[in-house]
Each structure stands twice: as C-alpha cells, then as structure tokens.
C-alpha cells in the first residue's frame, strides 16, 4: 500500500487533464481514495491516444498549467467566500450615506417607498464559476458541502464511539469498584461484628467462597445495604475509613454515603 501511493499520485497528475470536470476539482480526495472505475477506464483510453503519447512535452506543460489553474480556482473560492461574507455586513450607522438618508426621514430598520413596501436588504449575489446546471450547485460548493457533511458525519461518529467507549469503560470501572468496595465493606462489617475472631485462613476461604457465590449477586444495591448497615450499626464509614463516636458525629463529618461524595 505504501508503495502504491506515490504511483497513484503521479497517475493522478496525468489524469488532471482528462478526468471529468468534477473530479478535476478533487485532487486531494482522489489521492486518498482509489480512483473510481470511470476515471481508470478513461485513463486507459487516453493512453491509447497516439497524439498524446507523441507530445509528452506538451502534456507536461498542460499539467503544469492545469495545476496552476486548480490552484487559482482554489484561491478564488477563498476570495469569493470573503466577498460573500462581506455581503452579510450592513453599512454602519457612522457612514455619511446612512446619516444623509436618516436626515431625509429614514427610520433605521425600515424599508423605502410610498408605503414603505420596499426591500429592507439589498439583493444578494450568487457567484457561479462553473457550468453546473440549474438545480445543481456549483461543484466547488457541492464539494465543500459534501466535505462538510462527511466531516460532520465523521465527527458525529467519532463522538458516538467515544461516548460509547467512555460509558463502557465507566460501567466496567464502576462495577469493578462496586465489587472492590463491597468486599472491603463486607470485610469491615465482619471485622466489626466479630471482633474476636482472628481471621486469616478461614476468612480467606470464606471470602473466596463468598466471592464466588456472590459474584453474580454483587450489585450497587447490595453494596449500599452493607454500607448502610456499617453506618447504622457501627457509625462506620468505609470511605472515611473510621468509626465515629455517634451517629450525629457521622452525619456532621462524613460528606456522604457514596464513594463519589468523598
């Protein structure tokens, strides 16, 4: 693939002269995408044309001119955009013409005429620099519009993907957190309930067994139950990591029930 790209580019340059009108305005696009069957078949037919093979220098000159033409067209589109942007900006009130018309009785924002029935805005200008028929926009504009749409589309897709990825990540992370916290909470509860029992081996087995058992059961609600139990019965907050003197002390000092609150 890496090898074929430069080839395509050079082919593309050759094609500039012969491709259909529209594709001529899409040099960058056609580098990225493989040429469509129409243009490739055209290329073949052009290669058979003896008059073109015989005058390679002529071809080169034309290519150079064509390229310049494309460049000029591109610049012109930019300039047209500037022009059209200026068409949007009304004449400022500081203009002497504005003041003179106002002196004649013009109310800013109104229209002229005996009944004030005239146009409020000047007739706009539409710059067409191609031979696209009625109902088709200028190919430049069409292309820009198309690009805009694809970019928007891409962006929207990306955004959607990112969101999906994010939420998936988040939910995965959350459920993992829930399990971890549940286990911690459960351990704390156990500890608080059976102070005397000295844990390791048994506990480990229990925990494992429990975990295996509970793996499917562990939910946010389950976690909440345990957390509440810890708070109600022992004035203990898992996330503060301490046991409070009283339930009022807990309420005053602990920022909340959930991990996020901390």
């Amino acid at each position: 693939m890496a090898e074929s790209t430069p080839n395509m580019e050079s082919n593309n340059e050759e094609d500039d002269d012969y491709m259909a009108d529209l594709s001529r305005f899409l040099p960058s696009d056609s580098i990225i995408h493989p040429p469509n069957p129409k243009s490739s078949s055209k290329r073949i037919s052009e290669k058979k044309d003896p008059s073109i093979n015989s005058s390679k220098s002529h071809l080169k000159a034309l290519n150079w001119q064509e390229r310049r033409k494309i460049e000029r067209e591109r610049k012109q589109i930019q300039e047209d955009e500037q022009t059209l942007a200026k068409v949007e900006a009304p004449i400022p009130q500081s203009n002497i013409g504005f003041k003179l018309l106002k002196q004649m009785g013009y109310t800013p924002g109104s229209a002229l005429g005996k009944q004030g029935s005239g146009r409020a805005e000047p007739v706009g200008i539409e710059i067409r620099r191609s031979r696209a028929g009625i109902g088709l926009e200028d190919p430049h504009k069409e292309k820009m519009k198309r690009e805009e749409i694809t970019i928007k589309h891409k962006r929207r897709n990306e955004q959607a993907l990112m969101e999906e990825f994010g939420s998936r990540q988040k939910s995965r992370w959350q459920s993992r957190r829930i399990i971890v916290n549940f286990n911690k909470a459960k351990a704390a509860l156990d500890q608080l309930e059976n102070r005397d029992i000295v844990e390791p081996p048994k506990n480990d087995d229990d925990a494992e067994g429990e975990e295996e058992e509970e793996e499917e059961e562990i939910t946010e609600e389950g976690l909440l139950d345990v957390l509440m139990k810890l708070r109600d019965e022992f004035n203990y907050c898992l996330f503060c990591g301490c046991k409070y003197e009283s339930s009022s002390a807990l309420l005053d000092n602990c920022p909340g029930i959930n991990e996020d609150d901390h």
């Binding site: 009304p90 005239g118 805005e121 000047p122 007739v123």
Partner: peptide, 23 residues
C-alpha cells in the same frame, strides 16, 4: 428631495441609496 418616500414601483434597498448619497 424626499427619496425615502418617493413612489417607486419597487423601492430599492435603503443601503443602495446610502451608498449613492455617500458617493
């Protein structure tokens, strides 16, 4: 003198007259 209320069949946009007066 009153170009604002002159009885044009299709009165021009105010800005067209502004530009003319300015020039």
């Amino acid at each position: 003198d009153d170009l604002v209320h002159f009885d044009f069949m299709d009165p021009p946009a105010p800005e067209t007259l502004m530009r003319a007066l300015e020039v």
